[in-house]
Write a protein that binds this DNA or RNA. Sequence first.
DNA 1: TAAAAAATCACCCTTGAAGGGGTATTTTTT
DNA 2: AAAAAATACCCCTTCAAGGGTGATTTTTTA
Lengths: 210, 210
Amino acid sequence: MHNQEAARIVIIEDDKTIREGYHYLIDNTSPYTVVNAYASFDVAKLKIAKDNPDVIILDIQLPGTNGIDALPLLKKMLPNVYIIMLTVYETEKIILDALANGASGYFTKNTPSSKIIDAIKEVMHGGGPMSPDVSKKVIMSLQKNQHSPLTKRETQILELIAEGKDRGQIANQLFIDVETVKTHVKNIYIKLDVNSKADAINVAKTNKLI
Amino acid sequence: MHNQEAARIVIIEDDKTIREGYHYLIDNTSPYTVVNAYASFDVAKLKIAKDNPDVIILDIQLPGTNGIDALPLLKKMLPNVYIIMLTVYETEKIILDALANGASGYFTKNTPSSKIIDAIKEVMHGGGPMSPDVSKKVIMSLQKNQHSPLTKRETQILELIAEGKDRGQIANQLFIDVETVKTHVKNIYIKLDVNSKADAINVAKTNKLI
DNA sequence: TAAAAAATCACCCTTGAAGGGGTATTTTTT
DNA sequence: AAAAAATACCCCTTCAAGGGTGATTTTTTA
């Protein structure tokens, strides 16, 4: 475990004002130390291993390699580093991509600057800090459509199809006949107006039915 | 939109001490009003429609219908209500189930009581409040295995298989030959030690490879 | 720069799962 | 009592899936 009191911070952010603002803020109003601040990942990657940071504050919109693509590369160089995204981008897809690729936290830039200090503390204690707008989007991404046209059984079967199960396996698992599975699948296709597994899964995922 | 200043709160919690504690806390240290507090969902469901709450504080471990099963029923009765889970349970599966079934926020009971007031404020403003331990688990559920045995291409193809796409569709989408897709699939099966789509998807999901 | 890993393409084979058509009974919910 | 959901059965055709074997090109890494 790292020394939680004197964590080493690196900032990768192309906007000079923001970069220097956070640099100053962290150095002067927290127990943490900014060991370096870079304007791009392409520059940072050459020296960041020596910086040996505990936490990286990472922007997404960077010249050259963007923050999302930088994430797995940083994780490879520094397997135990915590990475907090700090960016104006907040589409559901980008947020989910960032978290899927190893980000430990995610803040939008409309977050009060002081919150970043709390966020650093939280990741150092094993938490997963997010700004309210981000956590809302994350929760929404998990929520299913409450008004699904599919019945419970149909939803269940479509989920099993999405797991690659064939009719026989689904029938076994649900203790019903293969023919019944077929009937359900037919009704699913009719309701979703599709005529293939792939389209059914696609429509269902797009509308959060599964 | 509800009146954010005087939001109506209902508590469903079987532990009398906790229930009355939050009741008192909310009534006396916040602008919100607890319109009713119930010891179970089975009792609450008879009267909660008339309570017309903006926010429900809901426990999971309840006598009779548990909190997870109660979620969709509450959502059906009160489509616009915000539901905050407040419970000792915090396994990844239960948290994800709760959020998938319509919870707007999730706190564990080791959270400082005062935080619940902030949480109510946050949901009323469209946020998705979570305690740090919960948000950590949510983020972990989104993160992929950084040490996947699969290559990028193999991962990509397995994801498409999990979307129900057949070899031909995958080949088209990736601008490669069907035979190449076959080769990749074979290598995926070898690496994951399986010999079917379903098993490959299952192993991959269990290990967060996709 | 040489070696290793990843990605690409090809042709053989067999089997059965997938998809579409129609019909009907039982169970559950409203 | 009516409607919705879940169950089961029969017909049919086609091509995707999985296994075997071999080879070349591109990219990454040591």
